[in-house]
């Protein structure tokens, strides 16, 4: 059936396009400022079309000893290790709650529910991390708060419940143990939902600065997002000092405007690269999670 284009449709398409442009505009502005020369920014302000093109900011960032590169390495390793660990833990636990031989599986589900709906809050969490010694080391970036989420686990469990149980039974009959069943049968069958939760975790680790602000004091261990955040607050601090004292404090040249924006662009980079993949699996997970958790 061919639907003819009505003025109504054109209007709707136009409104949607406006919103899409509104969504992209801040990103484009950030990108454009990052490739403008510093002088042009100081003179004309942030502009959508660079007055003077320059890649100087990127040269500074990609310098061998720059703090941004170090933070990049920290974030990439934390994301890779964390995502693999978190996904494995989650899928294995989902199998425990799915396995019909486990008669206490519903009790266990309740055990996890409780931690989902009753949260003691920030202070106990922080005290627990201190007690466990999860401060000022790389483990603090990986383990607390991110490495296991009951919500993701229930997502996987519900998916597993839709797999006919006869598959597991026949594998057991053939003498396969639980580990063999999980790794050889459930991992391949659940690959789409595993990709979804891996993306949830991966994005969580990539965008994580909460662990750093709470638990890390050593600047060498700062992840990318927190480095970025500090860049912003340093600038605010300097601006405030300048307001207070009415002069520029010597020895404290603020990080340049373009470097800030270039750092932001570099932070977004991998998300852009993975975008088609993200869209496909992330959206699926959101829908399943929202309609039935």
């Amino acid at each position: 059936m061919k639907v003819k284009v009505s003025p109504w449709n054109i209007l709707i398409g136009f409104v949607i396009m406006l919103f899409a442009i509104f969504c992209m505009l801040p990103m484009v502005l950030t990108l454009m400022v990052s490739i403008t020369s510093e002088d042009a920014v100081r003179q004309y302000g942030y502009q959508l079309i660079p007055k003077e093109f320059s890649l100087y900011a990127y040269k500074l960032i990609f310098h061998r000893d720059s703090s941004v590169m170090r933070a990049y390495a920290v974030t990439v390793s934390a994301t890779l290790i964390g995502t693999v660990l978190a996904t494995t833990i989650t899928v294995l636990c989902a199998y425990l709650l799915h396995n019909k031989n486990v008669r206490y599986r519903n009790h266990l589900a309740l055990f996890f529910f409780v931690t989902m709906i009753f949260n003691a809050g920030l202070v106990p969490w922080y005290m627990m991390c201190r007690t466990l010694g999860l401060t000022n080391n790389y483990l603090a970036l990986i383990i607390p708060s991110l490495v296991f989420s009951p919500f993701n686990m229930f997502l996987v469990r519900n998916f597993m419940n839709s797999i006919p149980d006869s598959i597991r039974e026949s594998a057991t009959m053939d003498g396969a143990g639980d580990f063999l069943i999980v790794f050889r049968i459930y991992f391949p069958l659940c690959s789409s939902v595993i990709a979804t939760i891996a993306l949830f975790y991966g994005l969580g680790y990539w965008n994580n600065w909460f662990s750093a602000i709470m638990l890390i004091d050593d600047t060498k261990m700062y992840p990318l997002q927190y480095t970025l955040m500090r860049l912003q607050s340093q600038i605010n601090m300097i601006a405030e000092m300048q307001r207070t004292y009415g002069r520029t404090l010597y020895d404290m040249t603020p990080p340049t405007e373009t470097v800030k924006m270039a750092t932001a662009v570099v932070t977004i980079g991998p998300i852009v690269l993975l975008y088609p993949f993200l869209q496909r699996f992330f959206v699926k997970g959101i829908i399943v999670g929202a309609v039935k958790g």
Partner: peptide, 8 residues
Amino acid sequence: SYLMGLPA
């Protein structure tokens, strides 16, 4: 199965 669920 329980061993698998242990970390979580």
